[in-house]
Amino acid sequence: MSANQDRFFALMVDKLGVAPEELTTEATFESLEFDSLALIELSVAVQKEFGAQIDETALTPEDTVGDVLRTIDAQLVTS
């Protein structure tokens, strides 16, 4: 499991209103009913919490929570 998963999941629940029971690394943003504006809020929240840059314009509804988590992990390792 990613070292950042607990923090990221807490952020998704506390800041973005995702129900904890729906939150898995396989969950797509479409399944979580994230629209374009919610993806922008996600990128802002990730930037504030982790200092990691998520390009929300590159995210699609088919991308998963795990995809974003891997981006965070990669940026934190290289920084």
């Binding site: 374009s36 504006l37 922008i40 809020e41 990128s43 802002v44 929300e56 314009t57």
Partner: peptide, 14 residues
């Protein structure tokens, strides 16, 4: 307009 709205949301929130 999506670009300016993204900047707005990042600065002020929805």
């Amino acid at each position: 307009v999506r670009r300016t709205k993204r900047a707005f949301i990042k600065a002020y929130g929805v």
